[in-house]
């Protein structure tokens, strides 16, 4: 008896929801959580890019919305922000020379996006702008705000274009898949030249085109083992590193002479 009653209420509620969607929402709001299997990724000698899988769950999903596929998720892996100079070559006496340049503050070194559907199908351009979501909506802060908007726009576009061309900014449409009603899996690409440092993974939940919630986690990307040691030594003990490089060269030259001598 009781069971039948609740069933009936649910039907009534969902009917109501269909009729007046804005007012009759279920009090429980949806949430999103993501988890990384590891909080650090090490780049080794053979690193030639990789896919990073991020698992996440949807809290309190509305089964009806879920069944109709109206939940959308966008997962972003954002590299550490760094200032960047964009330079443009122009012809001077026939030779291509770097002439104009524009410096931008806090540009994420890398920016990989994975989505359930093409970005334009998920929500409107305006909400992407507000969320500063997606490589083409990232706000790039020019160091010199006095430059003309046209120039800034031109260099911003060039910056995005170069970043995508080198694989640092990427988009993986269909990279987020629902494994069940609550569980999803996102696959973001790590470019071969992925920068080291603290990366931020963020997941955005949309319901019927409306932004609901965001969740984030941190990921440390670093060089491991041999390469990491060399890099660290080169920067902290640069004099000794230089001496080592010279000794290695002299030793190689001497050994090469011993082994391969032909006179």
């Amino acid at each position: 008896m009781r069971a039948r009653n609740t069933f009936a209420t649910a039907i009534v509620l969902s009917l109501l929801a269909a009729a007046v969607p804005a007012k009759a929402q279920v009090p429980l709001t949806e949430g999103i959580q993501i988890g990384l299997s590891t909080d650090n990724v090490s780049i080794t000698a053979g690193f030639s890019g990789a896919d990073l899988t991020i698992f996440g769950s949807l809290e309190n999903p509305d089964p009806l919305v879920a069944r109709q596929g109206r939940y959308d998720i966008i997962v972003v892996l954002e590299g550490p922000p760094k200032p960047v100079v964009v330079r443009r070559k122009d012809r001077v006496l026939g030779v291509w020379v770097n002439l104009d340049s524009e410096t931008f503050e806090n540009v994420p070194v890398s920016y990989s996006v994975a989505t359930t559907r093409p970005l334009q199908d998920i929500t409107e351009p305006n909400s992407y702008k507000q969320l500063s979501l997606g490589a083409s909506n990232l706000y790039m802060q020019p160091a010199d705000a006095g430059d003309s908007p046209a120039t800034i726009q031109e260099f911003t576009a060039a910056l995005r274009e170069r970043k995508s061309a080198t694989g640092l900014y990427s988009e993986n449409v269909g990279g987020v898949q629902f494994l069940s009603q609550n569980l999803f899996r996102a696959t973001v690409r790590l470019a071969p030249n992925v920068p080291v440092g603290t990366h931020k993974a963020r997941a955005f939940l949309f319901k019927s085109g409306l932004f609901i919630k965001e969740s984030s986690a941190q990921l440390e990307i670093r060089k491991s083992g041999f390469e990491q040691s060399i890099f660290r030594v080169a920067h902290t003990y640069s004099f000794l590193y230089g001496v080592f490089a010279i000794s290695l060269a002299m030793l190689t030259g001497w050994l090469g002479r011993l082994i391969f001598r032909r006179d």
Binding site: E227, I230, A234, H235, S238, F239, Y241, G242, V243, F244, A245, I246, L248, A249, T252, G253, L255, G256, R257, I259, F260, R261, R262, D263
Partner: peptide, 28 residues
Amino acid sequence: TLVHATTNQTVDVVLAFLLMAGGVAGAQ
């Protein structure tokens, strides 16, 4: 090499070593 290593940190020993290894053999 020493000055580049200390001021610019631009000497890559792995790269240099690979070139040298091929180079000294070829030179003889």
